[in-house]
Design a protein around this nucleic acid. Structure first.
Lengths: 201, 201
DNA sequence: ACGGTGATGTTACCGAGTCACATCATCGAG
DNA sequence: CTCGATGATGTGACTCGGTAACATCACCGT
């Protein structure tokens, strides 16, 4: 399949990340990215629907993975386990190494435009997860609440993983975060007073 | 303060809604909106940071209202009550009538670009609410989880209000939704077992 | 009446994104 | 080995969102 220089998408992604780091997202032109990648603006927009999406490729796959994991989950298992299966399916598919992920997260955090796209992705994942959970729970409200918890655990866990040294696996950190969420939720709902919570040992 | 024709922002908003309904969001030009409102493109972009924001003006105020409500809440009151105060502060400030809100919701749902902005607004509200709650709860995780629940109750309640006849007040519907969320959350966290819903093999 | 001030208009410009059309590299059939 | 089909890429022109510098106009107080 590969003709000319292979992996045009990957080249564009790497080039874009480099340029965004050098000059900032806004100051970098799509024509600039394409040129340094040995392509043209037209080809860039053939491969990506827009400039932001260069950094978010593959997030559509995330949704599919989560939804499939929910569909594959054992019927009758606790809802929280189904959520855990869904989000660990996403983390397992995470290919970028720790430092690349750090770079990417820094870029996104620095640009409102990219943060907006990130929020959209997050809400898309939450929506898809809710729909998938709905078939099991029968209640849209419960499915939505659970999806929120799962997505929060995924993103907050991801942030913890980013901030850490990268020794622990992403999946472990995220599943740990989910367990913490469940515990906190239980205490919140039971009306217990706030007390020192055992953070990670 | 008002010179020339007054309320340029309001005129632009109404004109934009009309045009978006007639032609769709994408097919409507900012110059078109400005012209029909008796202004020019430049003035439009002086009053709104971008085209999408025409439909979302005032959402920044929503955040302030929620945050202030949290700050004003009685110390020591249950966390869920603080959340209720925050979201009812937002609904109380809702000025648009039922049918206008329906139109606006339909427009936003029809355009991916507008849905993305809506997701960003929602995440911004959730973030601000989490920060406000953090001072009371001491735990960022609990604050985030509670903020998610509150924001979900707000949006899902809003949708229910939109879909209904508009007899009940928005605040009543949203607070009812929040109560339902709390109840569902309690059941989810206690005997969490998936309902006997017919699974597909 | 007049001058200051703020809101608006004019003009020109840049960059994202689209489109129609041309080109070129590869592969398979003969 | 040649040649045509195919699909990826390039070219050039275009629209539209958004910005900026400068000019203009309406109101207000003096």
């Amino acid at each position: 399949m590969a003709r000319w220089e292979p992996d045009a998408r990957g080249r564009l992604l790497r080039t874009a990340v480099d340029l965004f780091f050098e000059q900032g997202y806004d100051a970098t032109t799509t024509a600039q990215i394409a040129e340094r990648a040995g392509l043209t603006k037209t080809t860039l927009f053939r491969l990506f629907p827009d400039k932001r999406e260069i950094l978010f490729q593959g997030q559509g796959t995330l949704i599919d993975l989560a939804v499939e994991a929910v569909a594959r989950a054992v019927p009758g298992s606790p809802a929280i386990d189904v959520v855990a299966a869904a989000i660990s399916a996403m983390t397992d598919a995470h290919v970028a190494d720790h430092s690349s992920s750090q770079r990417l997260a820094g870029l996104i955090a620095a640009s409102p435009e990219l943060r907006e796209r990130a929020a959209f992705k997050r809400s898309s994942i939450a929506g898809a997860l809710q729909t998938a959970l709905l078939e099991r729970l029968g209640s849209a409200r419960r499915a939505g609440l659970l999806a929120d918890v799962g997505v929060r655990a995924y993103y907050d866990g991801f942030d913890r993983w980013i901030a850490a040294d990268g020794d622990r696996s992403l999946t472990a950190v995220v599943l740990d975060e989910l367990a913490e969420c469940e515990a906190d939720l239980r205490e919140l709902v039971l009306g217990t007073r706030t007390h020192p919570v055992p953070q990670r040992a």
